[in-house]
């Protein structure tokens, strides 16, 4: 925390951030998807009751469990505050909609989906990349149903020690231990305080 790694980060205008809530806005989601049916999907109901199954859903209806999309993931994490700047990760373009992917279960017998979030630290040697990644992981672990596995990575080529950071963020034991660290939890709580 001694030096602010990037005192003048690029800040995106709030109206430029990807969203589906401002439907009247001319800005459309820029992830290349069709977006055609997005408005039919309820926003957060599944977050509260992950095990609710549609009563009429047949077994062949594979889409019935894929009810959370990238935009919802983005909405969950873009409002996290940067630990250094009084700005959100969305407005700093640390998290970006095209860098969020949801992978379906690898087998019909599995119900485990994977959320992959690639974060872009504001500059290549940002010492807080791990903390930001941890904040994203913790936010998603708390908000998403447990059938999601969460892989948070540093976007390739954007950070000098991305492999080391990725390894730490992927290690559940280290993450669990970090969450028992009072100092670190204080930082994370502050980062997440701007989420809803």
């Amino acid at each position: 925390m001694d030096d602010k790694d990037n005192a003048n980060p690029t800040i995106l205008n709030a109206s430029d951030l990807p969203s589906r809530r401002r439907e009247s806005s001319v800005k459309q989601r820029d992830d290349g998807g069709t977006g055609l049916f997005d408005n039919l999907v309820p926003h957060h109901i599944y977050l509260r009751d992950p095990f609710e199954q549609p009563l009429s859903a047949s077994d062949s209806d594979d889409d019935s469990v894929e009810d959370i999309d990238e935009q919802e993931i983005y909405d969950l994490i873009s409002s996290i505050s940067d630990p250094e700047h009084p700005l959100s990760l969305g407005s700093l373009a640390v998290v970006n909609l095209p860098d969020i992917r949801i992978l379906p279960p690898p087998s019909p017998l599995s119900s485990i989906s994977t959320v992959v979030v690639e974060i872009t630290p504001t500059i290549t040697h940002c010492s807080l990349a791990t903390v930001i990644g941890l904040g994203v992981r913790v936010r998603l672990e708390q908000a998403l149903p447990p059938r999601f596995r969460i892989d948070v990575r540093i976007k390739k080529g954007t950070h000098s020690t991305d492999e080391a950071v990725n390894k730490q963020l992927g290690d559940k034991e280290r993450v669990a231990a970090a969450l028992e660290n009072g100092t670190l939890m204080g930082v994370l709580r502050k980062m997440l305080s701007t989420c809803e």
Binding site: S107, S110, I112, P145, P146
Partner: peptide, 9 residues
Amino acid sequence: MYSAHDVFE
């Protein structure tokens, strides 16, 4: 055995 602890690790 899949999903031995439901969706948990």
